[in-house]
Amino acid sequence: MMLVKPLLLVGLIYSTTIFALSPEEKGLEIATEVDKRDTGFADSKADLVMLLKNRHGEESTRYIRLRTLEVKGDGDKSMSIFDRPRDVKGTAFLSFTHKVGSDDQWLYLPALKRVKRISSRNKSGSFMGSEFAYEDISSQEVEKYKYKYIKDDACGDSTCFVIERYPVDELSGYTRQVAWVDQKEYRPYKIVYYDRKNALLKTLTYKGYQQYLGKYWRADEMFMENHQTGKTTLLSWKNYKFGNGYTNRDFDRNSLKRAR
């Protein structure tokens, strides 16, 4: 049994490193725990109001309904249905996120009744003219970043892990993101984004966490501030509902055409 010894050896090395995780390993461990604690919710739906403000204080709003289906072993499926502005009412966006490789995305244009397969390469582009990029709102899979633990830091009433994450995809608009994750519930508290030139770009803060199904935390508000342009976007989430019994049929091209 030639194999036994090397395996034992590997096991030994691994168990010793548990006690002395490198910053990279600890960062990954935290991200994995965040993901693990949000696994098993099966499906959800929610209403979203986006409030966009420019540096002159001019406001515009968007109303979107969002449905999500958890997919075991891969990224989530999601459907976004636009209610306002009224000229885009009925427009719907279907996305299959993948842990590895590019996502699949379809857009439904109600005026022409046309379903368009679109490229998912536009990661850094603005979602609906907001300060959120597509990559900020898409399903946050562990595999999409490399990680590094930085330090512990006070956040609100509790203590947070501060980790840096580096997008794996070269098309990302960021060199790095610094995330504060609370140590008790492993919920994101704040994320600071640095652009491709590693200059401070945006800060996202989460507010008003509510627990659903006795387990899953969702923030009522997410506030994104762009430090370079002075523009802000406030996402207000309402009517979260879990256990809708969604299946793949609720996330296919037929349901996209019917989305209301």
Partner: peptide, 12 residues
């Protein structure tokens, strides 16, 4: 063929 983010404002 789409060129993403051709302007500072993020035009495609």
């Amino acid at each position: 063929y789409t060129l993403y983010g051709v302007t500072d404002g993020g035009a495609d």
